[in-house]
Design a protein around this nucleic acid. Sequence first.
DNA 1: CATGAATGAGGGTTCATTCAT
DNA 2: AATGAATGAACCCTCATTCAT
Lengths: 199, 199, 199, 199
Amino acid sequence: MSPRSKAQFAALRDKSMAAIKSAALELFGQQGYHFTTVSQIAKAAGVSKGLLYNYYSGKEELLNAIIMDVVEMGEQFLDQLMTAALTPLERITAIVDGSIAMVQSDPHYWKLLTSLSLQINVLDEALTATLKNRQAAANARLATIFREMGYADPERETLHLEATMDGMMIHYLTQLEDYPIQAMRDYILQQYQRFQKPE
Amino acid sequence: MSPRSKAQFAALRDKSMAAIKSAALELFGQQGYHFTTVSQIAKAAGVSKGLLYNYYSGKEELLNAIIMDVVEMGEQFLDQLMTAALTPLERITAIVDGSIAMVQSDPHYWKLLTSLSLQINVLDEALTATLKNRQAAANARLATIFREMGYADPERETLHLEATMDGMMIHYLTQLEDYPIQAMRDYILQQYQRFQKPE
Amino acid sequence: MSPRSKAQFAALRDKSMAAIKSAALELFGQQGYHFTTVSQIAKAAGVSKGLLYNYYSGKEELLNAIIMDVVEMGEQFLDQLMTAALTPLERITAIVDGSIAMVQSDPHYWKLLTSLSLQINVLDEALTATLKNRQAAANARLATIFREMGYADPERETLHLEATMDGMMIHYLTQLEDYPIQAMRDYILQQYQRFQKPE
Amino acid sequence: MSPRSKAQFAALRDKSMAAIKSAALELFGQQGYHFTTVSQIAKAAGVSKGLLYNYYSGKEELLNAIIMDVVEMGEQFLDQLMTAALTPLERITAIVDGSIAMVQSDPHYWKLLTSLSLQINVLDEALTATLKNRQAAANARLATIFREMGYADPERETLHLEATMDGMMIHYLTQLEDYPIQAMRDYILQQYQRFQKPE
DNA sequence: CATGAATGAGGGTTCATTCAT
DNA sequence: AATGAATGAACCCTCATTCAT
């Protein structure tokens, strides 16, 4: 019936949406959310401003879409890791190394995310709530690893690892090659390697 | 009719500048840097926009001035702490507790500062460089504490403490009363309490 | 596989055009002409924007088509009334009551039409001229009623009735149930009932 | 204290606000509200767009301000008329003639107002409510005239006169010199001249 | 006949900054 | 030292319309 099939329309749409998201991610990461204009994004994506607004209700929704994409990528990473046949220590090592790799491969973007999470009036409440829930779920999974290792308070251990990792990350993001990230990584993992399960 | 003395002018000037900085700090903290307008600051400070521009070349310089104030406050705190008659462990405890107290007393403001430090194009290069130097100096002083305690690699220990502290802070700033900051504080300090100086 | 007959195509076409006009009428009436978008009309009519532009050269022509429909409905009503076997007073009563009934049955729509007739740059000149002619023709028919009744100046009487009716309508449209439209109707008709044909 | 006195600032401000309102009134009247852009208004007023927004929160508030100005002019006219030493018939004559003169002197503007009162989503609720109240107050004053003349139902007579007047006005506004407004005026007043106070 | 992706000119609005006094 | 009126560039967003298929 249709001159273009549904699938053709969908392909067109998906392509444009992906181009827009990709351009926005790049620019938000490089310049920051507030300093990036919708015009810049449209131009970088090779589409008109109007088309951008056909697919995203505004600059903020575009940001939300990007963040959700990344959240889901992170969860898939954690899924794979938790279902793989690994010892607890190997899992932790994979998490630490995976996190470092992610941040190293796209530091601008992680600056953006961390910064946004601390800003007021930028992320809308619905998204903030979602992120909180997802974070809690991830924490619970991490805690099972420490429980398996025999830690007395796995939840506290989870929070401690996350604090150290996130702190390390913001220092790395601020200083980049001046920060001894590999040495820090080794030092963090050392503690878990030395841990002896109490009788 | 008698002209005001130079001292009187200086007093007026200092009072206005302080009012401006105070108003800006308050508003930046509550609303974020980008969502705070110069007009709002001037109105809150009880001065005209024109006067604000007499004292500060713009919104950004005002931000810089505020940040430098805080940096100096932090350094004074560290000064007092390092010259007081304390054991190394007491010093570390004071640093940890002092940091937590500061963040708890004005979380909005620390959200702002942390967020800004991760944003690009907001803080100018000169200020960024200054902050880096000051941070390095503070690190060196912290390292002396760990050296005194007998740690094998005091610099690494400093970075580790800072990472854990900063990570904890951003989690606290994001979750506030949902974050068990006291328990984390105890756990962090525990490690230093248990440390045995190698023979 | 057999191609559709011309009649089938025409039926499809008429159905789509009617759906579009109906949707447009509804939306223009509810939201006003300016606040209704072509996309909304197409969606409400269940057709694509492209198809809408196949049938109507744009938003304005669609409006014109709707207005012409109503003009023709009004003329048919007048036709029936003038050819029916009625006394002059019955005719006037029917006109007054018919007008009130029409406006009461769809006040949003009549708000729209009245408002449009007063706006500049919305209705194009050709349509405005047409409306003027049709109005003049209707006036002439109305005047015959008053002439039949023996009024000295039937044209003036026509203008007077129309002014009173239209004024009453805009007050009704503005105030709706707060306006005593039935009492006004009675009062208007009373004057014609009391009129005595001069010898 | 101030480099410009308060009065000087106020004069500057009032001059600009008046220029803006005057330009807006002119353009709204000529082109209609929706077809007039803020840029056009600013240019016609000889000020920047920014200044316009210093004084009016937007296009709509500017419209509201203009409407309120006119409402108050109308009320002043009615005030003068009601306090002057006139017979009831002279008062009515003055109201009719005054209304016609107002509409004749600025037809575009009255087209605008009438059209707006019938449009949805244009005038905000607060203004609509205010206009309703003012209209009711004006009606009450008009009714006192008819009461004084001895009409059995002065309120109804008021509504009737207003309907006829407003209807006549929209016909005049639509047809201008083609509409026999003086003849209509005479015919309307004739009815009141002939009225005999019942015993 | 029918689709909806794509356009782009132009709209209303904001706000850091300047400047005459 | 101090004011606030005035600027204008740039922003986000809308929507009637076109067009390849």
